[in-house]
Amino acid sequence: MFAPIGSTEATMTIYLDGRAIPARAGETIAACLLRAGVGHFRTTPVSGARRLPYCMIGHCFDCLIEIDGVGSRQACLSEVEDGMRLHTQDGPAAIAGMEFQ
């Protein structure tokens, strides 16, 4: 859906569900994952529907994703960091050490 304008200048690597994705310093996680062609960042807690970013400026909260073990973070507001570990969020955010039904 999105292609880089010019060269990407990726000097970092982030990981989504274990998959390595090249990242450019200063870009948001959302931009990085969209360039990589990621099909959805999360599924909704209600129906399990897939979602991708909608507004990209922090209003819609559809870009929620798990960043370094913390769920429901806004990918459109968070910058990439080298070695960052992301997980597609299925339904509500998981809380470390807690199990829901």
């Binding site: 292609a3 870009e27 990209m56």
Partner: peptide, 17 residues
């Protein structure tokens, strides 16, 4: 997506649809 989202992806993400 919204038009603003695409513009943000251009400006901050250096991406084009």
């Amino acid at each position: 997506m919204t038009a603003g989202a695409v513009q943000t992806l251009m400006k901050a993400g250096r991406l084009k649809p």
